[in-house]
């Protein structure tokens, strides 16, 4: 299940892009062969994984995983380390469906500093700040706004 925390707290990994770069600085990218990670890279960055260390980007040409977008790096962080709380405001709305997909098989908590759009399909998200469970975007927006702007 997906839990969302709005705002800031101590245990959040605030810069998941830097975290990704640091964790994989020695070049062990064996996880790149994971079908879900390949699908994320294809969908979000429109890039193709040719090899664990080599990706074909339509804009940048042949690139190493270190040059993936901040959104993709954050999704990979969340997927590989579900016990950590990552700042998912590095992710655009095109990452939202992947966050829900990752949360289908494992419990994850993400931090948001904005209202991510999870789309029109029903979902189940627990708001950590107040314990409420929301199932549609309108309720998610109202809770997010109340916590971030009115409290």
């Amino acid at each position: 299940m997906l839990s969302v925390f709005f705002g800031d707290r101590e245990d959040v990994i605030d810069n998941p892009e830097d975290y990704f770069n640091g964790m994989h600085a020695l070049g062990n990218y064996s996880f790149m062969s994971d079908p879900l990670i390949k699908a994320i890279i294809s969908d979000v960055d429109q890039s193709e994984v040719l090899d664990n260390c080599l990706i074909k980007s339509p804009v940048l040409g042949l690139i190493p995983p270190m040059m993936l977008s901040g959104g993709v790096k954050t999704l990979i962080d969340i997927y590989l380390e579900p016990d950590e709380v990552f700042n998912a405001s590095y992710c655009g709305n095109n990452c939202a469906k992947w966050i829900l997909k990752i949360a289908e098989n494992q419990d994850i908590t993400i931090r948001l500093g904005h209202t991510m759009n999870f789309g029109e399909q029903p979902f189940k998200i627990r708001i950590e700040n107040n314990g409420l469970i929301v199932t549609k975007m309108y309720d998610f927006v109202q809770q997010s706004h109340r916590i971030m702007f009115e409290v």
């Binding site: 892009e17 979000v44 960055d45 429109q46 890039s47 804009v59 940048l60 977008s69 901040g70 959104g71 993709v72 590095y90 992710c91 655009g92 709305n93 095109n94 990452c95």
Partner: peptide
């Protein structure tokens, strides 16, 4: 500037 991931903002 905001929007989807993978559009070249950080670049």
């Amino acid at each position: 500037i905001k929007g989807d991931s993978g559009r070249g903002k950080s670049l």
